[in-house]
Amino acid sequence: MTPLNRKKERLDGLAASTAAPAAGQAGGVDVMDPVDPVGEAGAVRDAEGVSLLASAWRRLRRNPMFIIGAVLVALFILVAVFAPLLAPHAPDDRPLIGQISASTNPIPKAQDGFPLGGDEKGRDLLSRLIYGSRQTLIVGVLATLGGLAGGVTLGTLAGAFGGWVDSVVMRVVDVLLSLPSILLAITIASLASQPSQWTVIVAIAIVQVPVFARLLRGSMLAQRSSDHVLAARSLGVKRSAIVFRHMLPNSLGPVFVQSTLALSVSIIEAAALSFLGLGNPDDSKAEWGQMLGAAQNLFDLYPHIAFWPAACIVVVSLGFTLMGESMREALDPKSRR
């Protein structure tokens, strides 16, 4: 007899025993009617599925840390977008130039129409702060996107291929990581013949690359040995599909979280580079780091001209950090219910 037939016979015989699964059990109570139990597999609610992202978003919405961060970031973006409407003056207008005298009054005081006073060139400080948000946003976002693009490419290469590709990519990344990031940025910025806003962006983007690459490669490798990737392999799914449908999407969570944190780092580093004079030499477009740098000569007598741009930088990067940290918490599989 073949095993299949034997099994069939066995199962047929058993069918009888399942037909009356609870025979004789309800013996005691016959006043009450039995109630239908759930199907064997248990109930499945007839509703649209909720993806991981959706449930993470639900948790995020309730997190006060995230809300504070998001409000700060939203304010920052709104100010940047509507700068021309909000600012009372153009950033390169010099309405207070007449009040400046190099020896007695280098910085115009706060007065009607100029709530924060002016800067050393007679420009309205408030307007420059408002316009400065634009430059800061552009630099921060572009630098982070650049770093993200480079990091994701390298990380995917290393994580998807493994072996010697992984070794080569990671050694390059290690070298980049071993240099202090600000030093690397200074080197790159000073290599450019003419420092400009773009050198700052490129410099910071390159500094971000190894961070993203390492992070992504780490989670890709974890994915690679995970059961669901093994399951896809055993199904005969093509390698490229495994990388792009399973490994990459499941690895990007921490990378995106990192990118919000990286945004705040970019803003601070951009400010630092501008402060050191490696940014855009043309100060007609206001930029917070540059303003901070320009303020250093007069800092002891007029601390407020340094305080305001510094406060803006701190508050905005705090906003991004709060958002990033709470996103990381929400995406953490351990906190999932």
Partner: peptide, 29 residues
């Protein structure tokens, strides 16, 4: 050849890609 030989895993959660719906999980193979 993998079409002929399949596997059922111990941990049903970790062996299912968390970002795919059941439909796309079943369609993939």
């Amino acid at each position: 050849k993998r079409q002929d030989m399949q596997m059922v895993f111990q941990d049903p959660l970790s062996s299912l890609d968390p970002r795919q719906t059941v439909e796309s999980l079943l369609l993939e193979g």
